[in-house]
């Protein structure tokens, strides 16, 4: 594939967004019946489903902790989520992402409430178009909230990238592939916590500072939408007459 022009003449990105603009975001909470909690999050073409089971007892007692619940997280991409069929087995990348997503959630979950139990978080990427790990964090934290697991705050994820020398918010697959840098960030805005920060590529110190600021600004926009989605589940219940 030939390298496309990522920043157009008019300063907009290849899909017509401003550099600091998010993709259209759609968030729905409580989409599954059998799970304790669930959420479907879409950042543009990226579509991620998260389901939470528990807190519950598990047969693998050796994993449990005496003072708090453990969180087990599985990030998985469906075989049809990418251009070329992905093997459904967990890849090295998926195992690593499961770990970083779990670590992004752990600081906000009040796990001491349920000692000796496990909270299972299953994340399925239905369609991948860049920023799947950040969408996964958002979906997972909403699914946890939907399951009624006590949390100090919601965590939302968003990625910042550098393409053609310009810092851009919420990178898609094309910008990720041909950009100079990609920095996924997950934050708990009300607490002022950053719970996930990765950086692929090279940024100067100044660029990093403004990239983080940009990410946090994007995160608070998604945070507002997440709160709204959680409320919507109840606001949209109509009284049957």
């Amino acid at each position: 594939m030939e390298r496309p022009k990522l920043i157009r003449e008019d300063g907009l990105r290849h899909d017509g967004r401003r550099p600091d603009e998010l993709r259209p975001t759609r968030i729905t909470v409580g989409v599954l019946n059998k799970a304790s909690g669930s959420a479907l999050v879409e950042y543009g073409g990226t579509k991620v489903l998260a389901a939470v089971y528990g807190p519950r007892e598990i047969p693998q007692k050796h994993l449990l902790l005496p003072d708090r619940a453990i969180i087990r997280c599985r990030y998985h991409m469906l075989s049809f989520s990418t251009h070329e069929r992905k093997s459904p087995a967990l890849s090295r990348r998926e195992i690593e992402l499961s770990k970083v997503i779990r670590e992004a959630l752990e600081p906000v979950v009040i796990s001491e409430t349920f000692p000796r139990t496990a909270i299972d978080v299953f994340i399925e990427v239905i369609n991948a178009d860049g920023g799947t790990r950040t969408a996964a964090v958002t979906a997972a934290s909403l699914a946890l909230a939907d399951a009624g697991v006590p949390m100090r705050d919601l965590v939302v994820g968003v990625a910042v990238g550098k393409v053609d020398g310009v810092l851009v918010l919420d990178v898609d697959e094309l910008e990720d592939m041909f950009g100079e840098a990609d920095m996924p960030v997950a934050a708990a805005p009300s607490l002022g916590l950053v719970t996930l920060l990765q950086l692929n590529g090279v940024l100067t110190r100044e660029e990093f500072d403004s990239a983080l600021k940009l990410a946090l600004r994007g995160a608070s926009q998604i945070y507002e939408k997440s709160r709204e989605a959680l409320r919507d589940k109840y606001m949209k219940v109509r009284v049957e007459e």
Partner: peptide, 28 residues
Amino acid sequence: YVATVVGLAQVNEEAKEVSVIPLEGSYV
């Protein structure tokens, strides 16, 4: 005072009491 679950928050100014009734969650 920050809620930790999705629920109905109640603030009683007279008795100076706050509570959150959860709308989701398992049985404790």
